[in-house]
């Protein structure tokens, strides 16, 4: 192939001509060929399709199928076993007239709002403190995050012990001579949620701090330089520049924390068992479990879990719209 460039310049220049001539014939021809090629195509990457079976089954059977199944059976009067005897919205009417459910919902709202506000604001403030190029950052982070590695059961039991009126904080302060001191949140229906909140924050703020810190570190260093050149105070830079830039991090954190709060179960079981007074710290997840697996009233359990799903959707849909729907328009 050494020389003879002249010869090469004479080679067929087919592009234009073939396009003009080939038209209908080539279409027919290629279709005929594809008849033999097409069945192969279904079998192409067969291994990949086989490998995806667990995922496909999980999504279709468990996530989609299971959810639809529960929603459908929430309109039946299933008791010990699921059965398809329709009762319309009966279960929901019963649910919303059940004082235990109402307490659960109120508790969840109260606990949820406070815990969202506190985990996110405290988590962000801690992240800002950690972002000041401090020494021993790893040590501080390790200490703040370790509760997140623990089970809610462990968290609940530890705080149950620390808040024990006889031996815990109340007992100690009284022992110092302040006899009238009272700090017994877990045995008072009015304050039990604050007791849960203390434990919940202990477990969760470190996690939020880490997310926020990652968000802060993700901000371009040049933004800080620009703010310094413009002479903007550090706190003002955080407030006016950084927080708005971290909007996506805040939203994602909000969604994750909120979805976790709705599932709240283990912590309550361990720390208060739903008490005091029987149901002062009840939460919806507990209601579902008790009706499904203890009271043998499946219909109520299904209706209650459907309501939980609904509340997640209320959180999730606006977020999904902002995250994914917004992009299409903007």
């Amino acid at each position: 192939m050494g020389g003879d460039p002249e010869n090469r310049t004479l080679k067929l220049l087919k592009v234009g001509a073939a396009r003009d001539l080939g038209g209908p014939f080539s279409a027919l021809y290629s279709r005929g060929e594809r008849m033999s090629g097409q069945p192969k195509r279904l079998l192409r990457n067969l291994n990949a399709k086989i490998a995806a079976i667990p995922m496909v089954l999980t999504t279709l059977v468990v996530f989609v199928g299971g959810t639809i199944w529960t929603v459908v059976y929430s309109f039946t009067d299933s008791k010990l076993l699921p059965r398809l005897r329709w009762v319309g919205f009966d279960q929901y009417e019963r649910l919303w007239s059940n004082s235990r459910w109402m307490v659960s919902i109120e508790n969840l709202m109260f606990f949820g709002v406070l815990s969202l506000v506190f985990t996110i604001s405290v988590g962000f403030l801690l992240a800002v403190l950690m972002d000041q190029k401090i020494r021993y950052e790893d040590t501080f982070r390790t200490i703040m995050l370790y509760p997140f590695a623990l089970s809610f059961i462990v968290t609940g039991l530890v705080w149950q012990w620390i808040l024990n009126p006889q031996f815990g904080i109340e007992g100690i302060v009284r022992g110092w001579g302040w006899e009238s001191f009272s700090f017994d949140p877990l045995n008072n229906p009015q304050t039990v949620l604050y007791g849960l909140l203390i434990a919940g924050l202990w477990q969760g703020t470190g996690f939020v701090m880490c997310l926020m810190l990652a968000g802060l570190r993700g901000i371009d260093e040049d933004i800080w330089k620009a703010a310094r050149v413009d002479g903007i105070a550090t706190w003002k830079t955080y407030l006016v520049v950084i927080v708005p830039m971290m909007r996506p991090v805040f939203i994602t954190t909000l969604v994750i924390v909120a979805a976790g709060i709705i599932k709240l179960y283990d912590l309550v079981v361990a720390q208060t068992s739903g008490g005091p007074g029987g149901n002062a710290s009840q939460v919806p997840a507990m209601y579902v479990y008790d009706y499904m697996f203890q009271a043998q009233n499946l219909g109520q359990g299904f209706a209650a879990s459907t309501m939980m799903l609904l509340s997640v959707l209320i959180v999730l849909i606006p977020w999904a719209y902002l995250e994914f729907g917004g992009k299409k328009h903007g």
Binding site: M1, K11, L12, V15, A18, R19, G22, S26, A27
Partner: peptide
């Protein structure tokens, strides 16, 4: 290459291409 067309969804990426490459070219 005979009448090669490639679409990604509704986007046409390659349109009706015809090329012959000679041996050693």
């Amino acid at each position: 290459v005979k009448d090669l067309t490639l679409n990604f969804g509704s986007v046409s990426v390659l349109k009706n291409m015809n090329i012959d490459v000679q041996e050693g070219e």
